[in-house]
């Protein structure tokens, strides 16, 4: 058993230089993987070096503009305090906040607003 485990670890070490070791969200895994089974880092990072933080435009090219995103998470007309605020159209920031300040691909996502607030967004993929 131990031998199998260490063999697995060794295999993981050998086959995981750089990008392959980075965890991806499962819903991105398939889209970001090319025909050779390799994750295409450039899909988000472009030609920039590793560890660079993708620009908002990288997210927008698949997910649509910030305004379109805000429309998707719009609150119902006349919603009261029982409905959480639209995370993509904030009273304070409009739709200015770059995606990556909440949505993080290689680690757990977080809610920027919750530096002050306690909003609950159960549908947010962490």
């Amino acid at each position: 058993m131990l031998r199998v485990l260490s063999a697995l670890c060794l295999a993981a070490l050998l086959s995981a230089p750089g990008a392959q070791a980075m965890k991806l969200k499962d819903y991105h895994q398939e889209i970001m993987t090319n025909e050779q089974g390799k994750v295409e880092c450039s899909a988000c990072h472009g030609e920039a070096k590793r560890k660079s933080i993708p620009k908002m435009s990288a997210c927008e090219s698949c997910h649509g503009t910030a305004a379109e995103m805000a429309e998707l998470t719009k609150r119902p007309e006349g919603a009261g305090h029982s409905v959480e605020p639209n995370p993509h159209d904030s009273l304070h920031y409009g739709s200015d906040l770059p995606c990556t300040y909440c949505h993080q691909e290689h680690k757990e996502s977080k809610v920027y607003c919750n530096q002050c607030h306690e909003f609950k967004y159960p549908k947010m993929k962490r």
Partner: peptide, 13 residues
Amino acid sequence: RRQLLRGGAAMAV
């Protein structure tokens, strides 16, 4: 769209 994505990211850097 994927092509656009790559182009956009490349331009950004």
